[in-house]
Each structure stands twice: as C-alpha cells, then as structure tokens.
C-alpha cells in the first residue's frame, strides 16, 4: 500500500515534471523572439542626450548631442559640444537638412548623406535614427543560443524581405533571453561582407523596457575605427508631435 502510494506519488511527480517541462524551459519561436524584441526596442517617441566618441587610428573625437525622434520618420539632432554647438540636423523621412550656426544657413543634404557616418563617426544617420520594427522588414531565423556579456542570448539571423529597402540586407543579433535587448549585432553588406559590429556595453531599464545605453560600433571595413555612444537622460514618449519637426525648428534659438 505504502509502496503503491510512493509509486503513485513518483509517477504523479514525473507526470507533473513532464507536463511542465516544455513550459519551464520553453524556447520561444523565432517569431515570438522578434515580436518581443520589437516590443522592447521599437520606440514611438524618444528624447535623450548622448556622448559620441569616435576613435580613428588612435585619434579621439568627442561630440555631445541632444536627440528628439518619432519612430524612424522624424528626428532632430542638435550638437552641444563646444566646437559644433548649434549645429542641427533635421530628418523627415528620407530627407535631411542641416543648419550651421555660424551662417544661420539651412542646407538640404542629399539623401545618400543619410548613409554616411554622422559627424565623421562610424554610426550613420540611418544607424542612429533607425527605429522601425524589424519584423516588418526582415525574415528571422534562429541560429542557436550564445552567452554575451554573461547574458544568455538568442542568436538570430535576419534577412531582408523581398521588396523591402534596408541598409543591411543581413544582420545577426544576439538577443537577451530575458530582457529582449540586443547585446551584440553584426551587420552585413549585400555581398555578405561584414560591415559593422556593435556591442552593447550597458543597458538601463526605462518604463519597463531594457534599452542599450552604451554601445560601441566598430567599422569592420576600416581598421582601427570605432565609435562609442553613451545615452543618458532618456525619456520615452514626450510632449512633442510631428509638427515640431519643421525647418523652423532648425533655426529656433
């Protein structure tokens, strides 16, 4: 009787374990991972301050800036470091304007400038101001799991969906299994050549999201060139709308 009770208990326990196993160790599907990643990383409205340090062959250049952006369509960047103080960039969709403080002049910069490094850094305007949902543009494939910075990560490979226009046709991302933030990312050219690699050095929890706040971007096509960007005073949401992103905003004192 006692034995039977034990057997029954063990069996029940085993059954419970068997039933609960897939739940406890549940590996999410790649679509679920991407959905959670987008949920964490896609930001409708954000404003922050940032320090950008570019190191090229041992030469270090530091820039300070304040950024205000709506998704990936509207952005206003103002440089605040002494040398560039007052220089502003306005991005509306694929168009970019720049205002030089000395001449008070507004210059429209051709679209391909969006692809160039921002103020001589390894981070392009596209990289810095991109905030579209990855699932809209890419098909994801789960390659496995790896540990980055002591964090368990999903290794996901993203390939551009046909007909979608993106800067990097292929990307590899190491996504935190718990917080769904990106710890490491590799960006590839159409040819499959590794172009850039970014590593997250620090993250911060803001309004329930865990966002990278210190990122180092390495240009893999230029040896000895990397840019470290540190974000602070981050505010999600904010009291501004698309109307605040106008040419007038560029000249506002």
């Amino acid at each position: 009787m006692f034995v039977r009770k034990i057997v029954r208990t063990v069996l029940a326990a085993l059954l419970l374990v068997a039933v609960s196993l897939p739940v406890l160790g549940a590996e999410l599907s790649v679509d679920e991972i991407m959905a959670k990643l987008d949920e964490n990383m896609f930001i409708e409205k954000i404003q922050y301050k940032a320090t950008m340090v570019t190191i090229n062959r041992g030469r270090e250049i530091t820039k300070e800036m304040t950024v205000k952006a709506i998704a990936d369509t509207h952005a206003l960047v103002e440089f605040t470091n002494r040398r560039d103080r007052g220089t502003r960039y306005l991005k509306i969709d694929d168009e970019l304007w720049m205002r030089f403080p000395d001449t008070e002049e507004i210059v429209k910069i051709s679209g391909h400038m969006l692809r160039q490094g921002m103020m001589g850094s390894d981070i392009s305007y596209e990289d810095a101001l991109e905030s579209s949902k990855l699932q809209e543009n890419y098909t994801a494939k789960l390659l496995g799991s790896e540990t980055v910075n002591g964090r368990e990560c999903y290794l996901v490979e993203l390939t551009v969906k046909p007909g979608k226009e993106v800067a990097y046709p292929t990307r590899k991302m190491w996504v935190d299994k718990e917080h769904f933030t990106v710890w490491k990312e590799e960006m590839y050219a159409q040819s499959g050549k590794l172009v850039k690699e970014s590593k997250t050095l620090a993250v911060t929890e803001i309004d329930g999201r865990v966002l990278p706040t210190e990122v180092v971007m390495e240009n893999k096509l230029r040896r000895g060139s990397q840019t470290r960007m540190t974000l602070y005073d981050i505010e999600l949401g904010g009291d501004f709308s698309q109307e605040d992103f106008s040419l007038r905003a560029l000249t506002r004192p």
Binding site: R115, E165, A167, A189, S191, L221
Partner: peptide, 16 residues
C-alpha cells in the same frame, strides 16, 4: 581594392 557603395535598393554593399 575595397569598394563600398549602395545597391539600387539602398542596401550596403562592400566588395573586394
């Protein structure tokens, strides 16, 4: 020679 450009669809391109 490392040549970088953008494809017609705007994708980064880098070739040797």
């Amino acid at each position: 020679l490392l040549m970088t450009t953008r494809t017609k669809s705007g994708a980064f391109q880098a070739v040797d």
